[in-house]
Computed example of a mutant assay.
Amino acid sequence: MALGYRDDHLHLLACAAVRRSVDVRDAASMAELLGTIRQAAQERTAGEGQAAWLRAWGYDDALLAERRHPTVAELDAVTGGRPAVLHHITGHLAVVNTPAGRALGLEAGGVLVERHDVLARVPRPDRARTVIGVAGVLGDLAAAGISACTDATHTNDLAALELLADAVSIEPAVAVAAMVGADRLDTLGGHCFGMAVSGTSDSGVASGSVRIGHAKVMPAHDDDSAIADLVAAARAHGFPVAIHVMDIDTLHVALDALEAHPLPSAGAATRGAQRSAPGRSAPDRIEHCALALPEQLDRIARLGVKVVTQPSFVTRREQKYRDQLSPVEQEWLWPLAGLLRRGIEVSFSSDAPTVPADPNEWIAAATGRNMAPAERIDADTAHQLCWIA
């Protein structure tokens, strides 16, 4: 593998979708947001017709002047009767207008929180175009000096990994590992953790491959009750897990699950671990670790869990955190120095498309953050946390 930066947590298909979406990240008010969507709807109706779906992405209600989501009526008023989906920058919710809602089997539009089952029915480009879009994303990563990445999408299954592998065959400069949803491990057939999945392209281009990574555990919105069962399912398939954690309560449940279902010891490696590295397995991962109590960091250290975090969040969302968190909570936000001081393995990432895949930005955020400055680290250390060893 070529030396370079690595991005240990991003979403390649979502990045490809953003490339074909109306970008509303710069909107600072509801008027600006709706105005950008109105203009795009008018332009695209002229070129595509009124029936074509409109996809917009990148708004953050906490950063709009009004501090709220747009209403369905507001979205209806600017989309000219065509079905439209407006995705939040986090990827965890979307607003659909009335025509889109009805097309998706809803009575009307609305704000859909963690409704990937519904949003999966939105029309999307065919597989060939999607592969080309992902290859374009990989090209952007290579241009940013990133030579390895991990796709952390919780809906990944074998078909998704094969699609990513076809994109790698077009843009092989970036080595790709991809997690598989902990509830989708049965789709892998004979494949297991650490193995390579080949593409299925018959275009004559040499087939690319994607390494199978951790089992991704993504708890349902406001319901962490399934975490333990998903960890147990991953263990049954021989997988280490990567658990999505954004708050103290979820972290508590995640650590309890990891204690209840520990990775097998080196002497009792599972079939997945044996194929990926004889006698050992990769450590479990906590993804994000956005908010953590000091005693929870101690538990992470005792369990030998790796933390994959995103330094840019603490700078890009600083005002949001100051508005929504108490001064005490702000000191527990996006720990870095506290993780390293305890000997916890840490890796940087972007969570792209939510934050740009820009290692220079991550390093600047880690070394110069204003919030919880005690968590700053030095530049050499920050560089090592996103550089391929």
Rank of each mutant, 00 (worst) to 15 (best):
I377V: 14
G91H: 09
R124W: 04
R38V: 06
V134A: 01
L303E: 15
A228W: 08
V205F: 13
N156T: 07
S29K: 00
S21D: 03
L93C: 15
A167W: 02
V245K: 11
N97L: 13
E361V: 14
I132K: 03
A277M: 10
R6N: 05
W57P: 04
A173I: 05
H214N: 07
R316P: 04
R317H: 15
G4D: 10
V197N: 04
E259Y: 06
A292Q: 00
D378C: 13
M195C: 09
A273I: 00
D26R: 13
T130I: 03
V176E: 06
T150D: 05
L33E: 10
R285D: 09
E287W: 01
Q384T: 13
Y59V: 13
P373C: 06
S147D: 11
A142T: 11
D323H: 07
A268V: 12
Q330A: 12
H191T: 06
E361Q: 14
L164W: 00
P335C: 05
L163T: 10
H383C: 06
A337S: 08
F193E: 01
S347T: 05
A273L: 00
D222P: 11
Q324L: 13
A14K: 03
T71K: 15
G204K: 12
T381L: 13
E361G: 11
V72F: 14
L138D: 01
L86R: 10
D186C: 06
V22N: 08
E318S: 09
F348C: 02
A84Q: 05
V134F: 01
L10T: 11
L291G: 10
D151S: 10
S147F: 09
W332C: 14
G343A: 01
V72K: 14
S201N: 15
G189N: 04
G110Q: 04
F239A: 02
A135S: 06
A215H: 06
H288V: 09
E318P: 01
S281M: 03
P262V: 02
E331A: 15
D358F: 11
I243H: 11
V308P: 07
V22Q: 09
Q39G: 10
L64N: 00
A142M: 08
E74S: 15
D323F: 04
A366C: 08
L333H: 08
S29Q: 07
N370P: 02
G343K: 01
G58L: 04
F313S: 10
A135Q: 01
L230G: 07
S209Y: 13
A167I: 02
D202N: 15
E375S: 00
L112C: 11
A165G: 08
A173T: 15
L163Y: 09
P356T: 11
W334M: 12
T45I: 13
F348G: 02
E287R: 08
T98A: 12
Q310F: 08
E74K: 13
Y321G: 13
H116T: 14
